[in-house]
Amino acid sequence: MSAVCACSEKNGFSYCSIDEVLQKYSCDGNAIIPILQDIQENLGYVPKDCIEYIGEKLSVAPARIYGVVTFYTQFRLTPRGKHSIMLCVGTACHVGGAEKISDCITEELGIKGGETTDDRLVTFEKVACIGCCSLAPVAIVNGETIAKLTPDKTRTVIAELKAD
């Protein structure tokens, strides 16, 4: 790999990092999902502008890639906030009061599920079950699972994120 990235950083991301991922999968058109997963892991999202580029490299119609990106809830087309709150809204968490927690997050941050605060501080997402149902309601905050949430506990967590 070359030491210095030759390509310019357009649209806030470098095509080099995308090339690397494409090479890892030998530009295999059947590996669209893992390729997109890797890109998202590197950049935090799948930039809309790179879809056409990937399509060209994989000889796959951009529409098909766009179809995959929008079909699977994992993929995001917009950059994420610095912190992430993933609230589980699965059955056990719903029965355990996840809606109250969701209302509480919305009140504290002024954003709904799927949105990022204007200052890009926090992204709030809703997911269906993280497999911790016996400790419901649960959320994953910056990768760490927080169990048995209450509105008070939620406010404390958010205050900590805001203080950062």
């Binding site: 809204v89 699965g90 059955t91 056990a92 269906a128 079950c129 149902c133 016996s134």
Partner: peptide
């Protein structure tokens, strides 16, 4: 894939 929310 364990999609049923509530099964783990």
């Amino acid at each position: 894939d364990e999609g049923d929310p509530g099964a783990f």
